[in-house]
């Protein structure tokens, strides 16, 4: 469409880019910070930013689910896990592998490849986020979910059940002869 141009970005686009920068920045901090808890907290920012990006893309329901699940459950799980594994206050030395250059290489290579391919494929494509709004509402998404995706939905419920059982089994996997197996934190207290 001729009306689109790089030179005159719309408000939504500007917002998207700004939030995107926040997301990328916090994401970078998540994978580079020496302080694990800080990284986890930055992950909240990153997830929240992605939630806002969803909103900007017209996926309202997904956005709030993102906040609910990631902010309320996943991050709490992470913090919980960090505390149980005695994440120290301050920098954790040796948090990263000593030779990071292969990982950096892979990361940069992946970025280069993906961006190149994406740019080549979609440099002339525009879309209207508002088109997705009807779908992004609770009603639209619910309709799509239960009209077209009931079976995957049910399969997913089975998966969740399996994960639940698995998590319980894992955390109960202690035999009598294993001896005292207290959490380090409790042992201290």
């Amino acid at each position: 469409m001729a009306t689109h141009s790089y030179l005159s970005p719309t408000g939504v686009e500007i917002a998207f880019v700004l939030v995107g920068l926040v997301v990328l920045g916090s994401g970078l901090l998540v994978v580079t910070l020496k302080n694990l808890v800080h990284a986890a907290l930055w992950l909240i920012v990153c997830m929240g930013g992605i939630g806002i990006e969803y909103l900007l893309l017209g996926a309202e329901m997904v956005a709030w689910i993102q906040v609910l699940i990631y902010g309320g459950a996943v991050i709490v799980l992470f913090l919980f896990g960090l505390m149980l594994t005695k994440a120290p206050i301050g920098r954790t030395e040796e948090l990263d592998v000593a030779h990071r250059w292969p990982a950096v290489l892979v990361g940069l290579g992946a970025a280069g490849t993906l961006v190149t391919v994406t740019v080549q494929a979609y440099q002339h494509t525009w879309f209207e986020p508002r088109d997705a709004l009807a779908l992004g509402s609770s009603e639209g998404l619910g309709t799509a979910l239960f009209h077209y995706w009931v079976l995957p939905f049910e399969a997913l419920s089975v998966l969740l059940l399996a994960a639940l059982v698995g998590a319980i089994a894992l955390s109960r996997a202690r035999r009598e002869d294993d001896g005292p197996d207290e959490l380090p934190g409790e042992a201290q207290a």
Binding site: H4, T10, L24, G27, V31, A87, L95, A110, Y122
Partner: peptide, 30 residues
Amino acid sequence: MHALYPLILGALLFSLGLYGVLARRSAIAV
């Protein structure tokens, strides 16, 4: 909206995650 904004954001985020998985030693960080 230009299609490249979300797509490139996704690509860069993916690369960051890839780097993190490969470079972090702590299982939780991974």
